[in-house]
């Protein structure tokens, strides 16, 4: 088991390396020479050449990547062109904000969705199933930015119950579970949660429905077990697959937060990424994309490992 764990972590490393290489290449893929954003357009060629050598841009690309990677591993992501602050500094507060928003959206959304999906499967083709089915399709089909704007118009402009945008002072670094802080989260979290609720509900309905159709469910009934015991069996069977869906959906949710954070001006990684793109702030863009990608790689790894732990069929014979 430990060996399997180590092997899975080692498998993840080349992926992380490849991802960081792509991030590094962003500078070269982006239109225009990076030099041109540092030196004035009318600078003499000698000066351009001198700057090029100074920044190491004359070296082969793979060497440049090596140097860049060493800096990254040392926690040096460079400086933001926009603010002049270090990218690492910008990122640390933004990551905190995104995690707070992501979890606030995901925990209730996933809980609601799992319960709804399971209920729909248990009473398949009944009225609960029909209602849950239509609600989840509506949820999946709702665009983030539209829902965000509608919520803002309703609850901020007309009702004036909740702030339209922004974050509490200090945000993540001074986060407190008080209404003054939480009220900023309500609308973006709801907006962010809607699509995953729809998708997870439908997936859980499918997963649980498949399990309820299996022969062993009849056996459990034939043993005279109470429904609560049968539910326990269903949960343990559904857990590994459901977990995979939740992991993937959490990734999607964080991806979706780029749009939602922009609509609500929530100072997370999505907001940062959006600004970096529009300001052509390459170092900031690089750092943010890299952190997000590493997050996805780690998330997938964590889901895989957790699934292995939950499913005895894989746990006993990992890697088969």
């Amino acid at each position: 088991m430990l060996l399997y764990l180590i092997r899975r972590v080692l498998y993840a490393l080349p992926i992380a390396l490849a991802v960081s290489f792509v991030c590094f290449l962003l500078v070269h893929i982006a239109p225009g020479d990076p030099i041109s954003s540092i030196v004035p357009p009318d600078a003499p060629p000698e000066v351009v050449e001198q700057v090029r050598v100074e920044y190491g841009l004359d070296k082969p690309i793979i060497v440049q990547f090596g140097i860049w990677l060493l800096h990254i591993l040392g926690g040096d992501f460079g400086k933001s062109l926009m603010t002049g602050r270090s990218v690492a500094q910008e990122l640390s507060s933004a990551v905190g904000n995104t995690v707070i928003l992501g979890l606030t959206a995901a925990i209730p959304a996933f809980t609601i969705a799992c319960v709804l999906g399971a209920l729909a499967a248990w009473w398949r083709d009944g009225w609960i199933d029909r209602i849950v089915g239509s609600v989840s399709i509506a949820a999946v089909s709702t665009p983030h930015y539209w829902l965000g704007i509608v919520l803002v118009i309703t609850f901020s402009v007309f009702m004036q119950w909740l702030p339209a945008m922004g974050a509490p002072p200090g945000a993540a670094s001074e986060w407190r579970f008080e209404w003054d802080h939480i009220r900023f989260l309500v609308l973006p979290a709801i907006t962010l949660a809607i699509i995953p609720i729809g998708i997870v509900t439908r997936s859980v309905r499918g997963i649980v429905g498949d399990i309820l159709n299996q022969d062993f469910i009849v056996t459990l009934g034939a043993k005279g077990l109470h429904n609560r015991t049968i539910v326990l069996h269903v949960i343990k069977n559904a857990a590994p697959t459901t977990l995979t869906v939740l992991g993937l959906q959490f990734g999607h949710l964080i991806g979706g937060s780029i749009m939602v954070e922009t609509v609500f001006a929530w100072p997370g990684t999505g907001f940062l990424l959006n600004n970096a793109i529009f300001q052509r702030d390459i170092p900031l863009l690089q750092g943010t994309v890299l952190i997000l990608s590493i997050f996805f790689v780690t998330l997938n790894l964590a889901v895989d490992l957790l699934q292995t732990l939950l499913d005895p069929r894989i746990r006993r014979h990992p890697g088969q």
């Binding site: 062993f216 009849v218 056996t219 459990l220 034939a222 005279g224 077990l225 109470h226 069977n237 005895p312």
Partner: peptide, 22 residues
Amino acid sequence: SDLRGGAVSMIFQEPLTAFDPV
């Protein structure tokens, strides 16, 4: 459900699918 598995019980054709795999 008191009767099932108590006074009356059943064995099935395919024991692989009739047992809960986990």
